[in-house]
């Protein structure tokens, strides 16, 4: 039982990372109705800069780098809107283009070496389980950001404007909301959130230039699995996937280890926790 608990706790720490990556995804979906596939690349860029410079300054510069990258995405978004794109899949695909470009810039500027930095060395022992503080820190940061986002989205006027823009862009425009500008802001916020995730990964396990796409896909899965309608579900999705992965890594063997989390995702989707009520065809 203790062992099981230990796996669950490890899974939660792991899942916090996915949840963190899911936050910008859910945010973009709730407010813009699209997915920013460059989130993993923002994380990579922040980690690369953070690893090179180091310390608090490195973290700040890393965040700045991620922010700049996401501003590029925001600009692309505005240009796409100006060009008359209403199909949100185009925005998602161009964010993929940006992700590829960032990955390439990282490879060219830093080479193929891994980015890893020493986190905290201490080990806490809680009820026989040895825990490095980095795990709880990641979880706490994730929860704090989630709380902040939820408050922003559902408790403030800006949040209402954001949600209105997603639900009915035309209506929001008529109501005097500068929809495109507000939505562009969301991409910038995604850059900051992605950057924070990247820095935490840098101090937890490290990553290399190939990580961008897989981080994006992890965040994507987390944000969708319980439904993409709000960031809390995204974060929860991340935790659930993390726990499923840790348990299957612990108890599964060989191929099972990799298969179980995928079946969990399919099963969750198949069970329709998303609400099959959207059967009549909600198209973003």
């Amino acid at each position: 039982m203790l062992l099981f608990t230990e796996y669950v706790i490890r899974g939660l720490f792991l899942g916090a990372m996915y949840g963190l990556l899911a936050l910008p995804m859910s945010l973009a979906f709730v407010t813009v109705g699209t997915i920013d596939f460059a989130v993993g690349a923002y994380a990579l860029l922040a980690a690369a800069i953070g690893a090179t410079v180091g310390g608090t300054l490195g973290a700040l510069l890393g965040l700045a780098g991620a922010l700049v990258a996401s501003l590029v995405m925001a600009a692309v978004f505005v240009l796409l809107k100006r060009a008359g794109h209403h199909d949100t899949i185009m925005i998602a695909l161009s964010s993929f283009g940006l992700a590829v470009a960032i990955g390439s810039i990282v490879l060219a500027s830093w080479g193929s070496t891994a980015f890893v930095r020493q986190g905290l060395d201490a080990v806490w022992t809680v009820a026989g389980i040895r825990i490095n503080p980095q795990g709880p820190i990641n979880l706490a940061v994730g929860l704090a950001l989630l709380a902040g986002l939820t408050a922003l989205l559902f408790g403030t006027g800006l949040g209402r404007m954001l949600r209105a823009s997603a639900v009915n862009a035309q209506g929001a425009e008529l109501a005097g909301i500068p929809v495109v500008a507000v939505q562009a802001l969301i991409f910038a916020a995604g850059g900051l959130l992605g950057g924070i995730a990247g820095l935490l990964i840098l101090y937890s396990s490290g990553l290399d230039f190939t990580a961008g796409l897989s981080l994006t896909l992890s965040g994507f899965a987390a944000s969708i699995v319980f439904g993409v309608s709000n960031p809390a579900r995204g974060f929860l999705g991340g935790l659930a996937i993390g726990v499923a992965e840790a348990l299957s890594a612990g108890y599964g063997s060989g191929a099972m280890t990799a298969l179980i989390p995928q079946f969990v995702v399919l099963l969750t989707l198949g069970l329709g926790m998303l609400g099959a009520g959207r059967y009549t065809g909600y198209r973003p």
């Binding site: 060009a83 993929f96 283009g97 390439s104 060219a108």
Partner: peptide, 14 residues
């Protein structure tokens, strides 16, 4: 290569 590829992609989409 990825930089050119990604950039061209965005341009075409635009």
């Amino acid at each position: 290569q990825g930089l050119f590829y990604g950039g061209t992609l965005i341009l075409i989409l635009l």
